[in-house]
């Protein structure tokens, strides 16, 4: 464990907690894409299959349970909670996210490290996570009024994988110098997708004005 990775995990955890608090406090999920949340449930379920098979550390197991639990909880709130579900804007959240799941799965079947069930799903989860934010970014472009909590949520979610990139550089130079193209490139693409959002988010923060993404 290194500082970059711990900072990345904490940033990721903070983003999810922030979203959960926003939904619970405001009893509203306006501006949040259910599709991105569903994609993240698929990402965590396909990545954390080894949760009950391989024990790395208490931290590792605890965080996996927290990520799985909170992401499913958020989807439950947006789909089934009697008040929150009324605030979900279905016809704005239009991204056909299953167009992301299938190509990622096929790609994982073609490009992977070992052809085993666990490895294929782990690789699939990396590919899917790199594009999982797209429905949320599309929804933000349509939203005329992005509230601060939603903006901060997306910012932290994008920042966490950026910190992981530093973690991989650090581990490459300090550990076994092992090259890992699949997580590295997936993480790079994932972070690159946020650059547009990062630019407008930081600019709105500097100019103290409302966050607005160009359509």
């Amino acid at each position: 464990m290194n500082a970059f990775r711990l900072a990345g995990d904490m940033t990721h955890l903070l983003s999810i907690i922030l979203l959960l608090l926003k939904i619970r406090a405001t009893k509203s999920c306006a501006g949040i894409s259910l599709k991105t949340q569903e994609l993240y449930v698929i990402v965590f379920m396909s990545r954390y299959l080894d949760l009950f098979r391989t024990y790395y550390s208490l931290y590792n197991s605890l965080m996996k349970i927290i990520f799985l639990g909170t992401s499913m909880c958020i989807v439950w709130y947006m789909r089934s909670h009697k008040v929150v579900r009324q605030t979900y804007n279905n016809d704005e959240d239009t991204f056909r996210h299953f167009f992301l799941v299938l190509p990622c799965f096929v790609l994982a079947l073609l490009v992977h490290r070992n052809f085993t069930f666990i490895e294929i799903l782990w690789t699939f989860s990396l590919y899917l996570e790199s594009v999982a934010i797209l429905p949320q970014l599309v929804l933000l472009q349509k939203s005329s009024n992005i509230d601060n909590l939603t903006g901060t949520y997306v910012f932290l979610l994008g920042a966490y994988r950026g910190l992981y990139l530093f973690n991989w550089v650090y581990r490459f130079f300090t550990e076994n110098h092992r090259v890992r193209w699949i997580p590295w490139l997936s993480g790079l693409i994932q972070t690159a997708i946020y650059t547009d959002f990062f630019y407008y988010y930081i600019r709105s923060w500097k100019n103290r004005e409302k966050l607005k993404l160009p359509a």
């Binding site: 990775r5 080894d50 550390s57 590792n60 992981y164 092992r178 997580p183």
Partner: peptide, 10 residues
């Protein structure tokens, strides 16, 4: 299974 170091990441 040879343990894959990156798998201890989240």
């Amino acid at each position: 299974i040879q343990s894959d170091p990156i798998k201890d990441e989240l």
